[in-house]
Design a protein around this nucleic acid. Structure first.
Length: 880
RNA sequence: GAUUCCGUAGCUCAGCUGGUAGAGCGCUACGUUGACAUCGUAGAGGUCGUUGGUUCAAGCCCAAUCGGAAUCACCA
């Protein structure tokens, strides 16, 4: 039974039902193509901190488009979904929630109480996010869904930690690190964001010991850190301070005697050329301090207040309170020279925005030198390729200047560091929890309190999700992954780490291609952010415009690596396209029977061959673009073909045949309509899966489901260059007639007879056999087009040159001689300009000699055509 | 300071290995022709930021420069 398509497409009804149907049939699984070569994408796991935002929609749409395309190519396509526990981000949110509900702070909770809440939170958000990803139409294999803190991923983390530790690439030690006083944890370098802030530069006098009244002036932006000063440094080449080197100064307020050292680090031209050294609170001072054996005095508590090492007087003061107090005292005691305004970059916590403190602290680190090298090498050798290529530079730059990675976090939510210390003998055991100490046999083993940086587990994602360290079938089949799709904002956090972790553990890069996309910005080009409240909710967009419209808007007009500026107009345009597609299908279906007529190739007419030939070319271009990750171009080409060629021309050209008496012609048209529509659906399916699947179900002889159909292939048998030329000629004629009619304001109801002047028998034949189309599309009269009689009164005709033939419309008294002359003159002028351009080119001996023959021939043909047209127009103007 | 990106129609953006500048929206004028007014038809609109260079040929390659943005590193 043939089903009627509804007059309008209702995405709400279709999308939910279709998604369920796909999922229930297991079509998201790589097993649908058991013999296909594996194609794998790991979904960048969304954080379980909130809900899906436009960035995810962008990311996931790109991936789904790729996955669906490769599935249709017959590959065993696996899109592995999952979510990230997002250690610090989630902990902040869960603590907020607890605070709001019970008033308890972290200090008032036990780890167990907290973890119970956190797991609840994670479960809730995982479910929510999963539903949201489904709404987008994401064809990922939910049965394989993973979570960075599930048992398998946790095992991977333990194993990786152990392996790195045993190779000496993980160590524990006291180093200078970034500390967030609000989150009360260490942070890695990548987790610190710098922002410019207006501040001050305080110039402070440090008296020189044994030289009454003499002092050096140091300049600092952080006067409170002077309590931790253990030296003063000058440049060894600075003549002003030559005699000071080796002497001792007395630290004001504290009274500590500290040395003056010489170090190249000091810039003579900046400030006073004398720098106070606070090795425990400044990364540069730390380095200088190491070189000169300066003491490290950490004067700060975890919350950013000063500790007892700062001195009794200041202990307990917040760092900013302390600054005020100290400046005031320095001033009162005459140590403050002066204050300048100064703009500088201040590091802030990427999660809470608090100004971070640099301080020395006992933490766990990953030694990066040895890991970075192969990671750089692999990309250099092209084992992993960035798309677009420019991000290779970003990646290299970061890895070449990498410092050791601080991986311990003083948090509760995350993977607790798998290191155990024996209480009796002090032995450290790493990896799985041991029952007893292998050295002394003691059973009292204390695990590290801290958890790991959230990016440690994400770094294992390409293989932890496949079962590693177990040697599973999935791991063998799907590692290395084919592509990774992610934003440029996490190249450092994530991409680089996956590459060095993958190389270290698996001995192979984790993925072949890294497709880097940009950010979605608001209509004014600003980042979408919660604080600005300018975010667009993808779910609301889906609700209003459909998931397909959202996807199409995201894919078209965007090139890899570029940001997207959000415009609602684009959604309207996408929705309109869906409507167009729906209606083109509806038209086709209305004109098809329950079965597609069998035809022999000989019954195909020129318009059939033209559209098939065009379709064939578009198919090959779309495939080429898809293979090169030019998704925007691929979608654009499919769009143009559908709208401008199939709808605007083929459907219109074919109407007279569908309504006519000639069964053979009608059948050929029906056959072609069905074939072209089917291929359009297939080409568009990766981008707009719902509507294409829905329409596909209405086709008379459809297969099981479009999602598992094959992507169209280029077919040499469908290459019809002659028919393409002929139909282009017909289109030129139709356009020319329409143009004339618009110019003279002739309504379509007023039919006009068509005449021509040409020696070209072939073109004459085309005009004659296209008479039905000309009647329909150009309001030509029922009189068969004919050669213009010699005795015709030219004043009663209007004319144009189309495709090298002169055509005439008998419009009698409607012909306005003035307008006619105007129109033809304008045309003449245009042609003359073009002719000059082409002639110049051809007169240039360099061009004729050096340009490829095909290009030269093309120019010659162009010139001939221009000349011919020009002659005809000139003649016509003379006649008038 | 280093690196990168962007500058193309009124707006938002495409533009492939260099070979006659494109789309959507907007604008003008027509239009209820048996899929679609979420539409059709015809049209207007561009010295591709600027200046040099390479080339037979440059929006595309090179250099410089102006304007906007981003990332990294920072001088206390």
């Amino acid at each position: 039974m043939k089903r009627e398509m509804e007059k309008t497409y209702d995405p709400k009804k279709v999308e939910e039902r279709t998604y369920k149907w796909w999922k229930e049939n297991g079509w998201f699984k790589p097993e649908v193509n058991p013999d296909g070569k594996p194609y794998t994408i790991m979904m960048p796991p969304p954080n379980v901190t909130g809900q899906l935002h436009m960035g995810h929609a962008f990311d996931d749409t790109l991936q789904d488009t790729l996955i669906r395309y490769h599935r249709m190519l017959g590959e065993a396509a696996l899109w592995m979904p999952g979510m990230d526990h997002a250690s610090i981000a989630t902990e902040v949110k869960v603590l907020d929630k607890i605070k709001n509900e019970t008033g308890k702070t972290k200090q008032e909770l036990t780890r167990e109480e907290f973890l119970e809440e956190a797991w609840d939170w994670a479960d809730t958000y995982r479910n929510r996010i999963r539903e949201q990803i489904e709404k987008l139409g994401a064809s990922c294999d939910w049965d394989r869904e993973r979570f960075t803190m599930d048992e398998g991923c946790s095992n991977s983390v333990k194993r990786a930690f152990e392996d790195l530790y045993k190779k000496g690439l993980i160590y524990k030690g006291s180093r200078i690190i970034n500390w967030c006083p609000d989150c009360r944890t260490a942070l890695s370098d990548a987790e610190v964001e710098y922002e410019e802030q207006a501040g001050h530069m305080w110039h402070i006098r440090y008296p020189i010991k044994g030289e009454e009244g003499r002092y050096v002036t140091v300049a600092t932006t952080r006067p409170e850190t002077m309590l931790g000063d253990t030296g003063v440094a000058v440049n060894p080449n600075d003549e002003r301070y030559q005699d000071l080197v080796g002497k001792t100064v007395i630290l004001p307020l504290v009274g500590r005697e500290i040395p003056v050292v010489a170090d190249d680090y000091v810039d003579m031209t900046f400030g006073t050329g004398v720098v106070k050294m606070t090795p425990a609170h400044d990364p540069n001072d730390y380095e200088v301090g190491k070189r000169h054996n300066l003491e490290e005095i950490n004067i700060m508590n975890e919350d950013g207040s000063l500790n007892h090492l700062a001195g009794e007087k200041y202990e307990g003061l917040d760092r900013y309170e302390a600054r005020d107090v100290i400046v005031k005292e320095l001033d009162e005691l005459g140590y403050l020279d002066h204050i300048e305004d100064h703009v500088h970059n201040v590091g802030t916590c990427y999660r809470c925005g608090t100004t971070v403190e640099t301080m020395t602290s006992e933490q766990w680190f990953v030694a990066m030198q040895e890991l970075a090298k192969p990671a750089l090498e692999a990309v250099k050798e092209g084992k992993t390729r960035f798309i677009p290529d420019r991000f290779t530079k970003t990646y290299n730059n970061w890895l070449e200047n990498i410092r050791d990675w601080c991986i311990s976090r003083q948090l509760w939510w995350g993977h607790q560091i798998p290191a155990y210390t024996c209480k009796s003998c002090g032995e450290v055991i790493v990896g799985d929890q041991p029952k007893s100490c292998p050295t002394c046999g003691s059973t009292t083993l204390i695990q590290e309190e801290d958890v790991l940086d959230t990016w440690f587990s994400s770094g294992l994602w390409p293989f932890s999700t496949l079962g590693w360290p177990a040697e599973t079938e999935d791991l063998k089949k799907f590692y290395p992954n084919s592509a990774l799709v992610t934003g440029y904002d996490i190249i450092f956090f994530w991409v680089a780490r996956m590459i060095f972790m993958g190389l270290f553990e698996m001995g192979e890069v984790p993925f072949e291609d890294v497709y880097i996309h940009g950010l979605i910005r608001d209509s004014q080009g600003r980042k979408m952010s919660k604080s600005l409240g300018n975010g667009v909710d993808p779910l609301e967009v889906i609700d209003e415009f459909s998931a397909d419209a959202l996807r199409f808007s995201i894919i078209t007009g965007n090139a890899a690596g570029n940001d997207i500026r959000w415009q609602e107009e684009k959604l309207t345009a996408s929705r309109n396209f869906l409507n167009k597609l729906w209606n083109a299908a509806r038209f086709t279906l209305m004109n098809l029977e329950e079965t597609i007529p069998e035809i022999d190739d000989a019954s195909l007419e020129e318009s059939d061959k033209w559209i098939l030939s065009r379709m064939n070319r578009v198919v090959s271009e779309v495939r080429e673009n898809m293979d090169k990750y030019e998704l925007g171009l691929a979608a654009q080409k499919a769009y143009d073909f559908t709208w401008n060629e199939f709808c605007d021309w083929y459907i219109e050209l074919v109407k007279p045949r569908l309504y006519g008496e000639d069964e053979r012609s009608k059948n050929a048209a029906q056959h072609t309509l069905n074939l072209v529509l089917t291929n359009i659906l297939k080409m568009l399916h990766p981008v707009i899966p719902f509507i294409t699947e829905e329409i596909y179900g209405y086709l008379p002889e459809h297969g099981e489901a479009l999602i598992i159909e094959s992507f169209p292939q280029t077919d040499e048998a469908l290459d019809f260059p002659q028919e393409e030329r002929d139909v282009n000629y017909l289109m030129d004629v139709i356009r020319a007639i329409r143009n004339i009619r618009k110019n003279l304001n002739v309504p379509n109801s007023k039919k006009a007879s068509l005449y021509y002047k040409t020696d070209d028998r072939e073109k004459e034949a085309i005009l004659k056999r296209s008479h039905p189309m000309l009647m329909k599309l150009a309001s030509v009269s029922e009189e068969m087009p004919a050669a213009l009689p010699d005795e015709a009164d030219l004043k009663k005709y209007t004319s144009a040159v189309a495709g090298g033939t002169e055509i005439f419309l008998a419009l009698d008294d409607l012909v306005d001689k003035e307008k006619e002359i105007q129109r033809l003159s304008a045309e003449k002028e245009k042609l003359e300009k073009e002719l000059v351009k082409v002639s110049k080119k051809l007169e240039n001996p360099g061009f004729v000699q050096k340009a490829p023959e095909a290009v030269v021939n093309k120019e010659r043909e162009k010139k001939a055509a221009f000349e011919e047209n020009l002659k005809k127009i000139t003649d016509r103007l003379k006649d008038l």
